[in-house]
């Protein structure tokens, strides 16, 4: 019995069940909701959230209240940079990806140095960085939408690539495999869990916690920059606040996926399920053809119910 409860409390299982229930509900409400091409469409949206959540996941795993609130501004930055580098030219896609990812990585490293060297709390550091980037975006784009996606990039994100599946989903799958491999099969991956769960012990065993954590923030920026490229590929153009909508959902996807905000425990597999569940939930609510306000209220309430299932903190004991 205890074992059964243990299994039922597994965040991965809860998220997977939530996905199935939502798919079933969607199909009931609007037949055809769970059709193959619809699911591919949903997964495309989930991929954009999932890629930025990969970086968020790393930062959260690294512990010491790790969180990256600057990802939204970095996504916008990545989208604006990529859009201007490409400006509709297929040949410039790879340089655009490199520029966006590189800019994101640099921003992340600055975040990481602020958190580890200056020891600014992550929430404050990344919040401050968000303000700086928003200003930088105004300077960069002079406040008007600028740059546009190359046709090949838009096709890669939106159109079937191989087996009817868009290219972005292959990218996401590759990131998933890479994340799982790095987290579970490399010394770097295990050192993330080590500094996240017990930093003192990790430092005493000789791990350079500061350097590892700085890299994690760098990677979060890198993933956010890449997400920016995906966003401009998805919508075709960019504006300077295009990434704002991803900030807190990226944290929620991580939490719903079973990664503890205290750090040191969780997996990217869970975050993937969390991202899919979030996108599905929004999609089901859209299908309900309710007014915007009631969709919002139900969305928030569902998040609270999900928290009830496993987001609770330890009870205080004497």
């Amino acid at each position: 019995m205890d074992r059964l409860i243990q299994i039922l409390k597994d965040p991965l299982l809860i998220a997977a069940l939530a996905i199935l229930v939502l798919l079933g509900a969607g199909e009931l409400l609007s037949p055809g909701f769970a059709r193959g091409d619809q699911i591919v469409r949903l997964l495309t949206v989930a991929a954009i959230l999932g890629i930025v959540a990969a970086g968020q996941n790393l930062v959260v795993l690294g512990g010491r209240e790790g969180i990256d609130l600057s990802v939204g501004a970095v996504i916008s930055l990545g989208a604006v940079i990529a859009g201007n580098v490409m400006s509709g030219n297929d040949a410039a896609i790879l340089p655009a990806v490199a520029a966006a990812a590189g800019a994101g990585f640099l921003v992340g490293i600055v975040n990481g140095l602020g958190v580890t060297v200056v020891r600014i709390p992550p929430l404050v550091m990344t919040l401050g960085m968000m303000g700086v980037l928003q200003g930088a975006l105004v300077v960069l784009s002079r406040g008007v939408p600028s740059g546009n996606a190359a046709p090949a990039l838009m096709a890669f994100v939106n159109q079937p690539f191989v087996l009817g599946i868009p290219g972005i989903l292959f990218v996401w799958a590759a990131i998933a495999v890479l994340m799982a491999f790095v987290l579970r099969r490399t010394a770097f991956g295990w050192s993330i869990y080590a500094i996240g769960s017990n930093e003192r012990a990790a430092v005493l065993t000789g791990l350079a916690a500061g350097r590892i954590r700085t890299i994690l923030y760098g990677l979060s920026g890198l993933f956010a920059g890449v997400t920016g490229v995906c966003v401009i590929g998805y919508t075709g153009n960019s504006f300077i606040s295009v990434g704002d909508q991803y900030v807190l959902p990226s944290v929620i996807a991580v939490v719903i996926g079973g990664t503890s905000l205290a750090g040191g425990s969780g997996s990217y597999t869970g975050t993937i399920l969390g991202a899919i569940a979030l996108v599905l939930l929004q999609s089901v609510l859209t299908t309900l053809q309710m007014e915007f306000w009631s969709r919002q209220v139900i969305f928030g309430a569902t998040l609270l119910v999900l928290m009830l299932l496993y987001g609770r903190q330890a009870r205080l004991r004497v």
């Binding site: 939490v255 905000l261 919002q296 928030g300 987001g311 903190q313």
Partner: peptide, 22 residues
Amino acid sequence: LRFQPIVTTFATSIVFAGLALR
């Protein structure tokens, strides 16, 4: 209920904002 504060108050803010629109 011992929910995590950041995520919880974000979720309640979605609900409050929805009610405001109602």
